[in-house]
Design a protein around this nucleic acid. Structure first.
Lengths: 117, 117
DNA sequence: GGGTATATATAGCACGGCGATATATCGGCT
DNA sequence: AGCCGATATATCGCCGTGCTATATATACCC
């Protein structure tokens, strides 16, 4: 992330972002998730490795995702998939996000804030 | 804030929220800002005193707001108002917020996330 | 065999929201 | 007068967490 503001924005939506990418279907591994997030966000969200991997561990500890190591030889990948709890959490947070965003939009509208050019 | 998710959401929009309330016109003091944020957000955003006052100090240190103590006797109030830099920052962050929100909405759309009932 | 991309992991830093706590005034009730 | 809740500001310290830096190892191309 470029600046502090964006870093803090990310903080409020990081679980949401990663869970939603995993909801896109099938198992995915960390490095792939990083790439998909970057692409799906048009380059705006680019997770540092030091952010992503600890996050995946937290999500797994919380039972929201499940992992299995690649069976093949060579470069090992840790494949993640959503659990039922993860899917539920994703839905709930998506709703909360939408509500909160609407709330902020209203605050800005009340103040008649003009976006910068 | 009720839970961790909302606390982290707040973190990404706190400056925005406070600056936008101050953009609403005239000088305002901390306790009033707290009330107006609570009301304008439908009770969703309720700033703790331990959040609000340090924040106001930071914003002032950054030159985004300016303060003056109440001249009258009795209960003292510290009145804040936006500076030109503050108004500029507000516009910029409002734009960034809108862009980021659009980005998240797209991510959720791609993943076909259904919001919780 | 050297360099770049792929792939995962962790330690430690820096920052900030919040609970707890302190202080003081004001108004209403009894 | 005394009490109490609301008003009003302030700070300390805890805790969570995103990120930089660092480590390790494989794959592939030149």
């Amino acid at each position: 992330m470029t600046n502090k503001f964006e870093r803090d924005l990310l903080r409020g939506s990081l679980d949401l972002v990663v869970l939603s990418v995993l909801a896109g279907g099938g198992k995915k591994y960390g490095y792939l998730i990083q790439k998909e997030v970057r692409e799906a966000s048009g380059g705006r969200v680019d997770l540092a490795a030091g952010t992503l991997y600890p996050l995946l561990h937290r999500l797994e500890d919380d039972g929201l995702i499940r992992s299995s190591w690649d069976a093949g030889t060579g470069r090992e990948r840790k494949w993640y998939e959503l659990t039922a709890a993860g899917r539920k959490r994703l839905s709930a947070q998506a709703q909360e996000w939408a509500d909160y965003a609407a709330c902020i939009r209203q605050l800005l509208a009340i103040a008649k804030v003009q976006p910068a050019s």
